[in-house]
Design a protein around this nucleic acid. Structure first.
Length: 462
DNA sequence: GCAACTGTTGCTTA
DNA sequence: CTAAGCAACAGTTG
């Protein structure tokens, strides 16, 4: 995952091992990584010396002893190692540049083959052209402010925009938001100049501290065969989801998706508001409880309503038809769905996964859109949809009078509805609940139970 | 055993 | 114009 500190570590490593070495003809194993004409790249590098190595953002720049330079971007998994000519791993090797009069050479390993390299004249900025300054080189927070004021996008997305400021990737963007105590979901145009100053200060602090620790080692990443960074031990939110926040000790670190990227944050420290998941078996009083949370000032979401709305959404139907053409004859036929759900276990699994992921996506969107507010989300199949780590707290609703409630609602197929209970994994996951509400009481009593939970939560997150 | 997820960026599509 | 989704690819996790 090389981000700026990891790339800087690589730069330092290579500087001590590469300066003054003369390149022999490069051997290209994966030509897709070379973004300038390959023959120019190969002949251009042959016989050249590296005089110095620079870094701009996450790019490495090898200055050669002619008027050219080589530029590398490691992307997700790229690794530049100095290895033995005759004894190096061939696995995932994309490029090898042997040194003259030396047993070693420069190897570019890249499991995912996303990395790129360029051979360009010194006056051709190539991919560096659009790159913004690093936080170390921006001295006026007004520079950030002027960019952020122009957009309604979440601040974290702006931090990842390398054309405004370069060097923050997914890990450090999350860490910087945490250090500034701002929500990653906050609209960039809501930020103050003070926020921008905090972003600059904390970006410098965090990146410098990470460089001191030779970057972070997450997953398999290493700066060289012999170096692994240790900044992962200082991360406060990234990869910490589900753990108690190490600063406030009040709530767990949460993780959700923001513009396609995993985003970790502390709901308390970063003032995102808390997210409640309300679940329970059928006719267990979830809706009533959710309504009472609404009366207490929570914004609410219902998975059942969400699914209902999805079925009248043309975009969703189009997607559904692409995935499950057999349930359209020619338009959506719900009887076919229920038939298949009963008789075809493969269909059932696929279909449920599909719907669950849609609901989860919508719930995620709801939480992000309601940044800063307290939220209560009613999700009957919370456990089935694997959403137990999705909320600050989860609340289970329970009743002894399920059948009566179903009768009161005028349900006809009670047996069928009860069989549904076994599907939602409630009993199996009951121990994961933070609160359990027994809903068999008068409405006023139920309301006061909700009020006392609200008070308890307020107390915990004071 | 399959689905989902993973550090990045730039291009295509709506 | 922007915004979202995908593509490049392969390995790991639940």
């Amino acid at each position: 995952m090389p981000e700026l500190p990891e790339v800087e570590t690589v730069r330092r490593q290579l500087t001590s091992q590469l300066i003054g070495k003369t390149f022999l003809e490069p051997i290209v194993y994966y030509s897709g990584m070379i973004k300038t004409p390959i023959n120019e790249y190969v002949s251009g590098l042959t016989g050249r010396k590296v005089t110095s190595i620079d870094r701009k953002g996450k790019f490495l720049i090898f200055n050669l002893d002619n008027d050219y330079r080589i530029i590398f971007h490691l992307r997700m998994e790229g690794k530049l190692f100095i290895v033995d000519k005759n004894n190096h791993s061939p696995s995932h090797l994309s490029l090898f540049i042997p040194f003259e009069n030396d047993n070693n050479g420069l190897a570019f390993y890249d499991v995912r083959k996303f990395g790129v390299t360029y051979y360009l004249p010194k006056d051709d900025e190539g991919p560096l052209e659009k790159l913004g300054k690093e936080p170390f080189d921006i001295d006026d927070p007004k520079y950030l402010l002027s960019h952020y004021q122009k957009t309604n996008k979440p601040i974290k997305e702006m931090l990842l925009d390398q054309t405004i400021m370069s060097g923050l990737g997914n890990i450090y963007a999350d860490e910087v938001c945490f250090a500034c105590r701002i929500s990653p979901f906050m609209k960039a145009n809501q930020l103050t100049e003070k926020n921008c100053e905090d972003i600059l200060t904390n970006s410098r602090l965090i990146l410098n501290k990470s460089i001191e620790n030779q970057g972070s080692t997450v997953r398999s990443y290493k700066a060289s065969a012999h170096v692994s960074g240790s900044f992962q031990n200082f991360l406060k939110v990234y990869s910490q989801d589900g753990k108690e926040c190490s600063v406030c000790h009040k709530v767990k670190i949460e993780k959700r998706k923001l513009s396609g990227r995993g985003t970790s944050y502390c709901p308390y420290c970063q003032k995102t508001g808390i997210s409640l998941g309300i679940t329970g078996k059928i006719a267990s009083g979830k809706s009533q409880v959710t309504k009472y949370f609404k009366d207490e000032g929570y914004v609410t979401f219902s998975a059942d309503e969400c699914v209902h709305e999805l079925y009248s959404n043309p975009l969703f139907l189009k997607e559904l038809e692409k995935e499950f053409p057999m349930i359209f004859s020619p338009s959506l036929d719900k009887r076919i769905i229920s038939d298949l759900l009963i008789n075809d276990s493969v269909f059932k699994r696929k279909y449920e996964t599909f719907i669950h992921s849609k609901v989860k996506e919508k719930a995620n969107q709801f939480i992000i859109e309601n940044d800063g507010k307290n939220k209560a989300l009613e999700i009957p199949l919370l456990f089935k949809a694997k959403m137990e780590n999705f909320f600050t707290y989860i609340i289970g609703c329970e009743t002894n009078n399920q059948i009566e409630h179903l009768l009161q609602r005028g349900e006809k197929e009670i047996e069928k509805k009860l069989a549904f209970n076994n599907l939602n994994n409630y009993d199996k996951n009951r121990h994961k609940l933070d609160y359990i509400i027994k809903t068999d009481s008068t409405l006023e009593d139920l309301r006061s139970k909700v009020k006392s939970i609200v008070a308890d939560i307020n107390n915990k997150t004071k």
